[in-house]
């Protein structure tokens, strides 16, 4: 069964059609890359899936259920977690507290428990701390738990965003340019991390400009240009697809080339 299916998704900003009837579906446990030139509408597709934007038309199905009219926090609770293209961490809080934010939606303590620190609250808090440390260990930031998020290097901030997303216990992880600002070695480690998450059965949808990462990490690619899907297929198929080459490099008959 497909974990995520987009059905003729549409989004306009004024006169601009940012996403134009995009449809694709991804299999449970697969790593899918969404690629395309700058301004093609990739991040807009992500924002439509996660409820940050409301689509003007079409629908999004997660595990067979329509999530189109749902608010973001409910979509997270259903099992879709994301990272942001421009890093959005809680900069003045510790690394550990950032990850604890992800645990929030799996916790139940209400106002009463929070005010009086009931037994249930303390047990739940211990469990959340343990899960957060596990998520930090998974991305390799365990030793930075007490540091402020803003003091981490750029690459580590990206990893922290992944750890926070993992703490929500997602079924589908959406990564928006996870290698942005990373050096060669960090990118290599990220590819390993993505493979490790894939092996654990997590489905991953990612946007990335680093073609080496895309070709190595993804099982399947979807290409969009000017908001329209122009191709989809395995990395090998996409590399040889004339339409994709045209979109990235321009057509042969372009003047000046």
């Amino acid at each position: 069964m497909s974990i995520l299916r987009l059905d003729h998704l549409n989004k306009r900003f004024g006169g601009l059609v940012a996403v134009d009837r995009v449809s694709f579906s991804m299999e449970e446990g697969s790593v899918v890359g969404l690629i395309g030139p700058n301004g093609a509408g990739k991040t807009t597709v992500f924002n439509l899936i996660t409820g940050n934007y409301q689509p003007d038309g079409g629908d999004v199905f997660f595990q067979g259920q329509s999530i189109r009219a749902k608010p973001t926090h409910q979509i997270v609770a259903l099992g879709i977690a994301r990272t942001f293209q421009t890093i959005r961490l809680f900069q003045n809080m510790t690394v550990l507290e950032n990850v604890l934010a992800g645990c929030h939606c799996r916790m139940r303590t209400g106002l009463f428990g929070s005010l009086f620190h009931t037994l249930g609250q303390r047990l739940e808090e211990q469990q959340a701390l343990r899960q957060s440390m596990d998520a930090l260990a998974f991305v390799g930031l365990e030793s930075s738990a007490d540091q402020l998020a803003k003091n981490l290097s750029y690459g580590n901030q990206r990893l922290l965003e992944i750890a926070r997303a993992l703490a929500t216990q997602p079924r589908l992880l959406i990564l928006d340019e996870p290698a942005g600002g990373m050096n060669e070695q960090e990118t290599q480690e990220l590819i390993g991390l993505i493979a490790k998450m894939g092996q654990q059965g997590l489905s991953i949808l990612l946007i990335e400009h680093d073609m080496k990462l895309v070709m190595m990490a993804c099982d399947y690619l979807v290409v969009i240009e000017y908001g329209r899907k122009i191709a989809e297929g395995t990395p090998v198929e996409i590399q040889t697809n004339p339409k994709v080459i045209e979109a990235y490099l321009g057509a042969d008959n372009d003047d000046g080339i």
């Binding site: 940050n52 997270v76 929070s114 620190h117 609250q121 959340a128 926070r164």
Partner: peptide
């Protein structure tokens, strides 16, 4: 506590807080 932290998250970055569930 969970409640107090949630308030601090939304002070820091509302979009990220909502996106974290």
């Amino acid at each position: 506590s969970r409640f107090g932290r949630a308030l601090k998250y939304l002070k820091e970055d509302e979009v990220a807080a909502e996106g974290s569930g």
